[in-house]
Nucleic acid binder design. Structure first.
Lengths: 130, 130
DNA sequence: ATAGGCCTTCCAGTTACTGGAAGGTCAAGG
DNA sequence: CCTTGACCTTCCAGTAACTGGAAGGCCTAT
């Protein structure tokens, strides 16, 4: 299989696959005599794993950890769960930050006429010395 | 006032202030004969505005728009409100994405023993062909 | 022979800065 | 007068996770 086929099968771009290889997230692919990368079903599996993990918001570094655990038959599920728990905590922090912004913005927007007049509590809030 | 004083007053690092100048978000500061940047209270004001807007999650490009509106006494508040509304919509998209991830992760975590055994629904979910 | 659709590598750009190197400036202290 | 230390300056590199594009090789079909 060539990289384009793998890209189609996994939904990961060929560029990204090469990038993952370059940073060592996946092993270097075998090559044809002319230098083309060659992949097998196993590689497609791995890349699907990576894509799902990325889709859950894990960083590439965390995905590397998850992949190692996935391959380690002696792993302790507690390790995986801890990784996931950390990530959920991180997600919660982000959500909390976004909700704070959202709240402030909607509060200000409710007080902004939103018409042809220049008066605007949003700009006032950003610009005051308070 | 030198840049360090402005940094202390605004909470924006001197590095960031120079960066904002370099990208044109703020005007180039006046200089002393020896090349030091010189700022006044007005600049502190502007930088506080910038910092608050960034704190609400606006991108630097959006902050530039907000600054222009702030300075424009003929602005229509509708423009400001529209900018804010777009940003809230963006925040909502991000929150929705994060909530989806969070939901999947907690679902899987609840089913993971999290002990010394290797079985782990989290890895299973990432690795299945489904 | 050539056209097309693959593939390759390498460089640059994205966002919003931060860190660090190398060196100039300025006031205070010895 | 000289040095020390705390400022300041510019410039280059790095961050995360890729994407876009250029220049060129490979392979199949016409």
């Amino acid at each position: 299989m060539q990289i384009g086929t793998v890209a189609d099968k996994t939904g990961i771009s060929a560029k990204a696959i090469r990038y993952y290889e370059s940073i060592g997230l996946i092993a270097a692919a075998a090559r044809t005599h002319s230098g083309y990368r060659v992949y097998g079903d196993h590689d497609v599996q791995t890349l699907r794993f990576i894509q799902r993990a990325r889709g859950l918001g894990f960083s590439v570094g965390e995905v590397a950890d998850l992949l190692a655990l996935w391959r380690d038959s002696e792993r302790r599920s507690a390790q995986v769960k801890a990784l996931a728990a950390n990530h959920v905590a991180e997600i919660d922090r982000k959500i909390a930050g976004l909700r704070g912004m959202r709240e402030t913005l909607t509060y200000l927007m409710e007080r902004c006429h939103g018409d042809d007049r220049p008066e605007c509590p949003i700009l006032d809030a950003l610009g005051t010395d308070a």
